[in-house]
Design a protein around this nucleic acid. Structure first.
Lengths: 167, 167
DNA sequence: GGGCATTTACTCGGATATGATGTGTCCGAGTCACGGGGG
DNA sequence: CCCCCGTGACTCGGACACATCATATCCGAGTAAATGCCC
């Protein structure tokens, strides 16, 4: 089981966008510069977040991205599913119905027990991710941030954040 | 996030091997026939289980596979990690240390908070899988099995199971 | 007839091709700011 | 001096190559049984 690299980028991007005021935006190029990531590829993942309705995109010279909801109302699970897709990790192909000893089709009223166990574990994973919001991540990391970095980050933000025009 | 198809095959194979007596074995070709799966590819995954020490392989004309431990002592997590590898699904590349506002290397005494949240969710997933044994899966499915199928399966097993010779 | 070496056939194990998916990039559609011209 | 319009530049969005891993397969190493031979 493996998660794509874009998940990490998307979550970090959301935490940075959470620092914006309601009437401010930050372009994808800014996010790419801040995290030193390939701009085009990061943009692709931001598109996924936009398509999922987690962030709002404004086009044009003063455009950029902005969280669509307050950070306390965006869960980690939503971000991950926006990037990775919401499909279950375990795929049951019902192999119990195949082979020489398979019963007739009406002999399987319930889903396969193995699939149920796997999905139960996935449900626990999702529950943990659903209980964590972007706001939680930020508050957990604030006391760990080096004061020097906090200052340089604030300075960088003031130079790259732009006021949203149309909104 | 996606799990390989081999996981399903490996778990089903373990449940079937659990039906064997301590001095019996079942060859990979038999497992492939029982589940109607490509023999060569299933064999590859059984090799992973063997390398992980979950099943024992006996070679030669009367050879085959056999569980190495009682079904009640083999967890779902072990089977999955044997096939998929034990690496964590989320990979933290510490992108917070990159970019124009990164602090010196000594400014990060703790792992990234995002990675901690992701790994906490993975821990919940693993805990659920660790709490489920092969024996649990069997006992949960026994009352659901069609009596006709139980009979044909028992018959098939008696024709394909072999006594282990060297052991 | 019994015992033993050889052959044989069947098993698992690792090395080898192929296809799907994640990774990375580019160009086009859309939109606001700016600058020039007219009123 | 103010307003309007055309131009330009910057943004996001989707379509296009490449790399990596899951998928699928085959051939070689190893072993017990069966066979034939010798005693």
């Amino acid at each position: 089981m493996r998660l794509g690299r874009g998940v990490e980028w998307a979550v970090h991007s959301c935490t940075l966008l959470a620092a914006l005021a309601d009437d401010e935006v930050l372009p994808a190029s800014g996010l790419a510069e801040f995290f030193d990531l390939p701009p085009a590829y990061l943009a692709k993942h931001l598109q996924s977040l936009s398509a999922a309705g987690l962030i709002t995109a404004l086009r044009g010279p003063t455009g950029g991205y902005r969280l669509r909801r307050p950070p306390s109302e965006i869960t980690l699970l939503e971000v991950i599913e926006a990037v990775e897709g919401g499909l279950p990790a375990f795929r049951c192909t019902e192999i119990r119905r195949r082979g020489p000893t398979a019963a007739p089709a009406d002999g399987y009223p319930l889903p396969c027990g193995i699939a149920r166990a796997m999905w139960r574990a996935e449900a626990a994973w999702r529950a943990e991710l659903r209980a964590t919001t972007i706001d939680d991540l930020i508050h957990a990391s604030i006391p760990e941030i080096d004061p020097r970095q906090a200052h340089s980050t604030a300075s960088w933000m003031s130079n790259n954040v732009r006021p949203a025009v149309g909104d």
